[in-house]
Design a protein around this nucleic acid. Sequence first.
RNA 1: CAGGGAUUAGCUCAGACCGGCAGAGCGCCGCACUUGGACUGCGGAGGUCGGAGGUUCAAAUCCUCCAUCCCUGACCA
Length: 462
Amino acid sequence: MIAYFSANHFPEIPMRLSRYFLPVLKETPSEAQIVSHRYMLRAGMIKQASAGIYSWLPLGFKVLKKIENIVHEEQQRAGHIPMLMPTIQSADLWRESGRYDDYGEEMLRITDRHNRDMLYGPTNEELITDIFRAHVGSYKDLPLTLYHIQWKFRDEIRPRFGVMRGREFYMKDGYNFDVSKDAALHAYNRHLVSYLRSYERMGLQAIPMRADGGPIGGDYTHEFLVLADTGESEVFYDSAVTDLTFGDRDIDYDDVAQCQAVLEEFTSRYARTDETHDEALFNAIPEDRRRTARGIEVGQIFYFGTKYSEAMGATVQTADGKSVPVHMGSHGIGVSRLLGAIIEASHDDKGIIWPESVTPFHCGIVNLKQGDAEADAACDALYQSLTALGLDPLYDDRSERAGGKFATMDLIGLPWRITVGPRGLKNGVVELTSRRTGESEEMTPEMAVEKVAKIYAPRASM
RNA sequence: CAGGGAUUAGCUCAGACCGGCAGAGCGCCGCACUUGGACUGCGGAGGUCGGAGGUUCAAAUCCUCCAUCCCUGACCA
């Protein structure tokens, strides 16, 4: 439907497990404490390279790209423009903004062969402001929102929880430039809407909560939190906020009033993290609606006004010829962290349960009796039919026993499984099983293909 | 960064207190048996015991230093 930037989009490649690289572990590596970390290691999605730094193995990489893709689509739907900035930055720009000294030990500082001070970027306000001031000088060029999805590095004292709190992480960060505070607040609202849409598409409920500005600063800021017992933030909210869903409502991102209405709808109820929690306001909520829980932060939006534009001389001329610093905001989504958040929110004791929108493969095909002519032929036919429809199955064609194949499929969390065995084939049927409910239904192979295609059909058109 | 713990086979871990031939389960390879939930049996490969130094006739084991990883806390997308 909409055209989106596809530099990071990888085609979905159907796969026979015997040819794939899926190093699943039966036992849990001892370093993993929380469920998402354990399952990502066990499902062969990531491998730790050093503390807080991970290699993304094929299965994890596929999910990472799917999440990234949703973010790209929703950003561009909102009118934001993709680009790419480097991971390594010069310290000079950071001296200019004053943050080279402020940022502290969390910033990984590097010296190159000429003894120049460099750093592995933890964020990109300085770089983007430098780009802006070099090329934009007129109010006529505004509004402008640029974003990228890039690896960042923050030298956490104590990385933990796998990709949830790594030192190296993949993040979307976007920056809006506007001529006035009002215009910048519309950009803020636009981001809030686009984030709500993004998280919902990933099968997550992420609640916007009033946040603290932190080192980036900012008068207006909300964090988006996914409720999960393993979350690092304590959160307090009115249970009415969890009833809100964005759904498939139509949004005109240029409609100021409409975006403002969404912001009000989603942020008027009490919802705060412990950083900004206000006991008196919380207690004003009817007692049966007061909730205390834990949450995983998966994004944050800021309006910080002219903090960087003033420090770095990013100005535009207005219609009456005056030079004014631009109003800016920055807006982040933790892409790599989202894998952990989704797993925390969607798993059982057997493994991951992927939402259809981010699953690494659309469905699994389990051949219960590899080598049986009929079973092999039926599986091949299923694989071909699904692939021909543009679907992306993972066919377990290994000479494993049924139990091992089921255990692997459950662990890696494909939402649908087609089970093919001689017993069913005698009656002309295979079995379609939902990972989420565990419910199975017998049907002809043709019907199974049709049903899986139908499940994914709405997404295929986007 | 403070406090604590760990490092022995690909993974999970015994062995260390009390120095004396390097171990188990799972995984892997081969064979057999099997094919609806990690089945069973037989055979096999795989480790300079994190690194360096020291004590000793002899060190995975005792001592010193270093490195890495993990946990709790403070910090943090």
